[in-house]
């Protein structure tokens, strides 16, 4: 659901898994976590929050939650030990080969292996995954990926459907591709997106 490079320490991002809104964040020491994107206090999105050390705090009232999602501090009552009932629901998050994966249900299998590749960028397309597969001229494989050649470079496009008939593509390229070649792939991706979206608009 995201490239590891796009979530460095102390960064929180909003995303989705199976239509559920998530805040994914990395602690100062590098731990990745995926939680419901909602502070149990007043419903504020935690993806607007801030990371100090190993905890994530809500921007609204500064309530902070430890790595397990348990509330550990309520600034309005600095001496209070928050009741254990105050916790943010979490989902499993793992990282492999430069990609962050989350699963709302316990995953039956580990994420696919993507060796020999380097993460380039993620981009959101205003079209469902099927429309992108059609434009790329290939089906989505068992790893949830498209594997086209773009700008003459072998690419892997991991497909993440998100609500609103939109799709996020997380793109990896062969790790020996030069920066100039990677930039060419990035432009080819923009072109692919333009084609998919204009076809959708025409239809």
């Amino acid at each position: 659901m995201a490239l590891s490079r796009d979530v460095p320490p102390q960064v929180v991002i909003p995303t989705f898994v199976d239509g559920r809104e998530l805040a994914v964040w990395r602690s100062q020491s590098g731990r990745i976590a995926a939680w419901d994107d909602r502070c149990p206090h007043r419903g504020m999105r935690l993806s607007h929050g801030f990371v100090r050390g190993e905890s994530l705090s809500c921007i609204y009232h500064g309530w902070s939650y430890n790595e397990a999602g348990l509330c550990q501090r309520i600034p309005a009552h600095p001496d209070l030990v928050p009741p254990e009932a105050i916790r943010v629901p979490t989902v499993a998050a793992v990282e492999s080969d430069g990609i962050i994966w989350v699963a709302s249900e316990p995953a039956s299998q580990p994420p696919p292996t993507l060796t020999g590749l380097v993460a380039l960028r993620s981009l959101t397309v205003e079209a469902p995954a099927t429309a992108i597969a059609t434009a790329a001229g290939m089906p989505i494989d068992q790893d949830g990926a498209l594997r086209p050649d773009l700008a003459g470079i072998a690419c892997v496009l991991l497909v993440q459907p998100i609500p609103g008939d939109r799709t996020v593509l997380h793109v990896l390229v062969a790790s020996n591709a030069s920066p100039a070649a990677q930039a060419a792939v990035s432009r080819a991706l923009e072109d692919l997106r333009r084609r998919v979206e204009s076809e959708r608009l025409a239809a």
Partner: peptide, 18 residues
């Protein structure tokens, strides 16, 4: 445009569970 609260340290120790 909010400032980055993460640039500041926590103002005190975390209240301990006993």
């Amino acid at each position: 445009i909010h400032r980055l609260h993460d640039l500041k340290p926590e103002p005190g120790p975390i209240p301990e569970r006993v």
